[in-house]
Amino acid sequence: MSIPWKEYQEEAASLFRSLGLDANTDITVKGVRTNHDIDVLVKSQHVGFEITWLVECKYWKTRVSKLHVLALREIVSDVGADRGIILSEAGFQSGAIEAAHLTNVQVTSLAEISTSARNDIFSMRLRELFDRIEDCNDRYWNIPKKMRIEYGLRPDVGAIGYSGNHMIDLCRDLLSRAFRGVYPFNTEAIMALLIPSFQTVFNSPNEVVDAVEPLVSELEQKLVAYEAGNQA
C-alpha cells in the first residue's frame, strides 16, 4: 500500500467513522502530567456507553519497536483512555507484540482493526441494549396494570395489541442468543411472529442491534410518557 502517511492517517479515521464513531486527526489531548499529540482520537457517539481510543499511525517501511508500544501505554494511562492502538502495515517487532500482550494497547493493521473494532463496537452496543431493556423491565413492572393498559404498554384483558412484557421477552431472547455468538440463529419468541415483516433469522451482531434498538426505543418512549404524566 503506497500512500502518503497523511492519507494513511485519514484512512484510519474514516474507518472508525464508518463504525459510527467520532474520529478526528491531529488532536492534542490533555493528560494528568502533560499534553499529548495524537494522530487519531476516537470517541463513541452512542448513548449508553463512552469510549476513548488513542490511535497512532506508523506508516513506516520498518516494523514498530517495543519502545513505541511502551510510550503509547504511558500516554493511555496519563489520559485515562480506554485503549491505545498502533497501526502499522509493516508489522511489529516481537518485543512490541510482547509489550502489548494483555494490556489495553493493541498493535494491528488497518485490515485487522476493521474486523476487531467492528466486533468490539457491536459487543458494547449489545451490552448497552441489554442494560436498557433490563431497566425497562424494572420500570414496566412498577406500573399498575390499569395504567399500563391506559398508556398503551399492554392490551386490555382478552384484547390484542402492543405488549411491553412481550417486547422485553423478545429483546432478551435476541440479546441472549447474540451474546452466545453462534450465528445464524432463529428466534422463537412469540412476539417476533406478531410483528409484521420482523426479521426472525439473524446472521451477525449488527443485525441483532438493528432489530432490537427500535424495539427498546419504542418501549422507552412509552415508559417516559407514563412517567411524565404521573410525576409525584
Rank of each mutant, 00 (worst) to 15 (best):
Q9M: 07
D120G: 08
T34H: 10
A225T: 13
I51H: 05
N119S: 14
E98H: 11
F92N: 05
R148D: 04
K222N: 02
R180K: 14
I190F: 06
T34Y: 07
N24K: 14
S109A: 06
E74Y: 15
Y226V: 00
L21T: 09
P196A: 07
L126S: 08
W53N: 07
I75L: 03
N119D: 13
R132F: 00
Y162T: 01
A71K: 15
H68N: 13
R132N: 02
Q199I: 02
S88G: 13
N230D: 10
A178V: 02
R139F: 04
A192W: 01
A13T: 05
A23N: 04
Q231Y: 10
G20Q: 01
Q221I: 01
C57Q: 03
V182S: 13
S109C: 06
V40P: 08
S197Y: 08
W53T: 02
I38V: 12
T28M: 12
Q231H: 14
N35M: 08
E134L: 14
A111G: 13
V79S: 13
E128R: 07
R172W: 03
N35Q: 11
S204C: 04
I3T: 11
R83Y: 07
A100N: 13
R73V: 00
A12D: 09
G84T: 06
K61R: 09
W141E: 11
S44F: 00
V105F: 02
F198K: 02
L215P: 10
S44H: 03
N206H: 07
L223P: 04
S77G: 14
C171I: 03
A100K: 06
T200K: 09
L70G: 08
V40K: 03
R63I: 04
R148A: 03
D138W: 05
L170H: 04
I133W: 02
G84N: 05
T52K: 14
R83I: 03
V216N: 02
T28K: 15
N165G: 14
L223T: 01
W5F: 05
V208F: 02
L193P: 00
D169C: 01
S114W: 05
E134W: 10
A159T: 07
I149P: 05
I27K: 15
L72R: 11
T187M: 00
A71M: 08
T28C: 12
N186H: 12
H46G: 00
C171V: 03
G152Y: 06
Q9H: 07
F185C: 04
G84I: 03
I113A: 11
A111E: 15
L153F: 11
L72Q: 10
K30M: 12
T52M: 14
E213K: 03
I168K: 06
F198M: 10
G48Q: 08
T115N: 12
R63E: 12
N203S: 10
Q93D: 08
H68W: 11
E218Y: 01
V157T: 14
E128G: 06
T187N: 00
D138E: 12
V107E: 10
V107P: 13
R33K: 15
L15Q: 09
P205W: 01
D82N: 15
V208D: 02
R33V: 14
L54T: 10
M191F: 03
N203W: 04
E50F: 06
